[in-house]
Design a protein around this nucleic acid. Structure first.
Lengths: 238, 238
DNA sequence: GTCTATAAAGGGATAGAC
DNA sequence: GTCTATCCCTTTATAGAC
């Protein structure tokens, strides 16, 4: 078990801070946990299992994460960070709206491809507003903001009326949540059906892009804006 | 405990079948269970508690429902039946689309008004395709079909192009699911925010009703139809 | 102090008598 | 249809070993 030697120098009182090593260990715990979640499921994985496979004591594991839930919180952050990074890499490849939306959607599924079991387990918290892991609760507001931001950047170069500009990222986020739900239920090989749905949905959005600016649809737009605002479904500050 | 006398004549071998009494007892178990779910929550209610308060033995309760989940299944059916009944009563009051959609949406919240805690607990099953209580899984297909049917009847008298006619009930069902999610998180008194959201959403739909038939939007409609079909999101037979 | 083995409790579900 | 008795699994508590 070589892992336990990662911190073998921690007692030597060096002036150099050990942040790198500490972060590595934290990362090791996170990745070990994810591997176990994938292997045997979220519920059947104990923090003990994680610590054991990571070559750490139970106490050490709890030093890095206050709880099993905190590990999941770190996973959320990882997904978010990874999504922003990969999507931006995609955005640099093309200024075309279709390409950018595809990148935004597909990279998310890429990241989560192997974690459907975990996501299905985490879905349960979605119904509890007070749970720190709820995808819709106040505790994950920051994650949601970052998630919306990906779509905000995807349409950053589009010339759109200000009202459309304001609500589109949130609507795209909602669409992407719907696609994630579809993904949870998708049993096709490599989630091919979800991939197809993404492409179709993106084509639909791109097709709608020209329509929304029509004067005829102006009242509809205004109505959508006011609905979302009244329902407090838009991020507070823009 | 007067309840246990409901069947006090059970040993008299009357020719008349006792179905009525049996149904009453079943109903008693269901209503007792719901009362306890509301009082102390789904997880903290045991079948033992239900049986005790209903004045039955544990075994008797299990005679009527194979499991605690089966009780919830009966609740789903109750909600569905009640929704269809109340919505139809509303539909008889008005031929106006706005009124009918409002009736369809508001009656659903009326029925569930006191069960938000239970719904939040049941939400957890939504992520598991194989769970019999998942709102999106194959096991509840029939419930979903009936749920979509309410919206089908709401728009029954509208003169709409066939493709719009085919997909609108499903889209309205999806909208209503989104509103239910909002409802789970709504902490305003009497779920007033949800009520407002319903009214706004209905106005939006009614406003869109004239637009969808525009020739300009024909390609958009066709695209939506094919997306939903390809994704198997429409009921099979219509 | 921490770990582990074992006991106790809780609770879903079933079997068979009546 | 309803009862009692019981099974069986999971969670929680505890006691003694290390």
């Amino acid at each position: 078990m070589p892992f336990q030697y990662l911190n073998m120098f921690k007692t030597s009182r060096r002036a150099v801070p050990q942040r790198a090593t500490s972060e590595e260990t934290r990362r090791l715990v996170l990745e070990t946990a994810l591997a176990l979640f994938r292997e045997r499921g979220f519920d059947r994985t104990t923090v003990r299992d994680v610590a054991e496979r990571a070559g750490l004591s139970l106490g050490a594991a709890y030093y890095y994460f206050d709880s099993k839930e905190a590990i999941v919180g770190a996973y959320y952050e990882h997904v978010q960070h990874e999504h922003l990074t990969r999507a931006r890499a995609g955005f640099e490849q093309s200024a075309d709206l279709r390409d950018r939306l595809r990148a935004a959607m597909h990279t998310k599924i890429d990241i989560m491809q192997d974690d459907r079991g975990l996501l299905r387990a985490l879905f349960r918290y979605g119904g509890d507003p007070d749970h720190p892991l709820s995808w819709f609760g106040p505790a994950t507001r920051e994650q949601r903001r970052l998630s919306v931001q990906v779509f905000d950047e995807a349409i950053a170069d589009e010339r759109l009326p200000i009202d459309v500009r304001d609500i589109t990222p949130t609507l795209l986020w909602a669409l992407h949540m719907g696609i994630l739900l579809y993904f949870l239920y998708d049993r096709s090989p490599s989630a091919q059906r979800t991939r197809n749905l993404i492409d179709s949905a993106v084509d639909f959005v791109v097709g709608g892009r020209r329509l929304v600016t029509l004067p005829l649809l102006r009242p509809v737009r205004r109505r959508v804006v006011s609905i979302l605002r009244d329902a407090a479904l838009l991020p507070e500050s823009r």
